[in-house]
C-alpha cells in the first residue's frame, strides 16, 4: 500500500536514513576486514596445507553458483586433490590385519606407484592449464571492466512520470478491458499500475530502485528487480502488454535490443508493447535527468521506432506529446492466425 499519511511517510523516511547509515557502516567495516584478510594472505602466517584443507571444507557444501565462488576457489579444491597417494593405509582393527595389509601393499606398491604417478602427472597438468586459464580470464575481465559501458539506468523524470501525465491516459485507455497480465517497467512508485488496476487491468510493476518502502508495494504487486533480468525470466507469450517508461532513454544499443526482444517474446498473440520515451531534444535540455550526462546512450527519434519494432515483427505507431518533449510508441504483435 502506498502511504498517503505524512506521519507514516516521515517515520518511514527516518527509518530509511537509519537503515542507510547502518549499511554504510557495514560497508566500512567490510572494507577494513577485506584489507586485513589481504594483508594476512600475503604475510603467509597460515600454513598453506592447513589453509587448503580448511578452504576445501568450506567449499564442500557451498553451492557452485553462490556468490564469491570464483574459478580460483574451485582450483584450490583441484590442487588439493592432484596427488594420488599409492601408499595405502594399513591400520586394521582385526588381529593380524595390519600385517596382511602391509604385505599386500608391498606386493602391489610398484604397480600402484606406476599408475598413480601417471594419474597425478595428468591431474597436475590439468590443474596448471586451469591456472593459466584463470590468469587469462582474470586479465581479460580486468580489460573488459575498463571498457565496460555503465549499466543502463531507469530514469525518474518528475514531469513525465506521474499519474496525470498525458501518456498515462492514453495507455490506460488502450489497455482497459484487457484480461491478460500487463507489466510496467520502470514502475516508480506505482503511478501507472495503480491507474491500470483501478480500471480492472491485471497489472504489476518492476523497478530497479526501491522508490517506496518495499512492504508498501504489496497490494499492487510492485517489485524491486533488475528490469532486463525480469523480462528475461518472463514466460514466453504470457503477457497481454508491456509498458516501458524511463527505461529505453538511458540504455545502450545492445541492452535496448535485448530488452525489447525479451519484452516481445513475453507478449502473446495480439499483445501490445508501449514505449514512453523522452525525445533527443528533451534528453539534451537543461532539465533532463542527470543520467543524461552519465550514460553513453541517447533516446531514439520517434520515427526510428517504426523500423526498430518493425524488425521485431510489430506494427508500430507513434503518438507525440503536446510539447514535443516526449512521445509514446505503440507496437502490436499480430493476432493469432485463425
Amino acid at each position: 500500500m502506498l502511504s498517503d499519511d505524512p506521519g507514516t511517510a516521515q517515520e518511514g523516511s527516518s527509518r530509511d536514513d537509519e537503515n542507510g547509515a547502518a549499511r554504510r557502516y557495514l560497508d566500512e567495516v567490510r572494507a577494513e576486514i577485506d584489507d586485513e584478510v589481504r594483508r594476512r594472505r600475503t604475510s603467509g602466517d597460515l600454513p598453506p596445507n592447513l589453509e587448503r584443507e580448511l578452504d576445501q571444507l568450506f567449499l564442500a557444501h557451498s553451492p557452485l553458483g553462490g556468490r564469491g565462488a570464483a574459478l580460483r576457489d574451485m582450483l584450490r579444491l583441484v590442487d588439493a586433490s592432484v596427488f594420488i597417494d599409492p601408499v595405502v593405509p594399513v591400520a586394521s582393527r582385526r588381529p593380524g590385519g595390519t600385517a596382511i595389509k602391509k604385505g599386500l601393499r608391498s606386493l602391489n606398491l610398484w604397480y600402484l606407484r606406476y599408475v598413480t604417478h601417471q594419474v597425478s602427472e595428468f591431474a597436475t597438468a590439468v590443474s596448471r592449464a586451469l591456472h593459466v586459464l584463470d590468469a587469462q580470464v582474470t586479465d581479460l575481465r580486468r580489460k573488459v571492466d575498463a571498457l565496460a559501458v555503465p549499466p543502463s539506468v531507469a530514469v525518474d523524470v518528475a514531469w513525465a512520470h506521474h499519474p496525470d501525465a498525458w501518456w498515462v491516459e492514453v495507455v490506460t485507455g488502450e489497455l482497459s478491458g484487457q484480461s491478460g497480465r500487463v507489466l510496467h517497467a520502470a514502475c516508480g512508485d506505482g503511478f501507472l499500475v495503480r491507474a491500470l488496476v483501478a480500471r480492472g487491468v491485471d497489472a504489476y510493476g518492476v523497478d530497479p530502485v526501491e522508490r517506496v518502502p518495499g512492504l508498501e508495494f504489496d497490494p499492487l504487486d510492485l517489485r524491486v528487480e533488475n528490469i532486463e533480468e525480469h523480462v528475461g525470466a518472463v514466460a514466453s507469450g504470457s503477457l497481454e502488454a508491456v509498458v516501458l517508461s524511463g527505461v529505453v532513454e538511458g540504455s545502450g544499443y545492445v541492452e535496448r535490443r535485448r530488452l525489447l526482444g525479451g519484452a516481445v517474446r513475453g507478449l502473446g498473440p495480439g499483445g501490445t508493447l508501449l514505449v514512453h520515451s523522452l525525445t533527443p531534444a528533451a534528453w539534451e535540455s537543461d532539465d533532463a535527468p542527470v543520467e543524461a550526462d552519465m550514460v553513453a546512450a541517447r533516446p531514439y527519434r520517434p520515427r526510428t521506432w517504426i523500423g526498430v519494432l518493425g524488425d521485431l515483427g510489430l506494427d508500430a505507431t507513434v503518438t507525440e506529446g503536446p510539447d514535443g518533449r516526449d512521445y509514446l510508441v505503440t507496437g502490436r504483435v499480430a493476432p493469432r492466425s485463425p
Binding site: R23, L26, L46, D55, F58
Partner: peptide, 16 residues
C-alpha cells in the same frame, strides 16, 4: 539489507 551481521567466505575471513 539490515547492516546487522558480517560474512565469511574462507577460514581467513572467518578468523578476521
Amino acid at each position: 539489507r539490515s547492516g546487522g551481521g558480517l560474512w565469511f567466505g574462507s577460514y581467513r575471513e572467518f578468523e578476521v
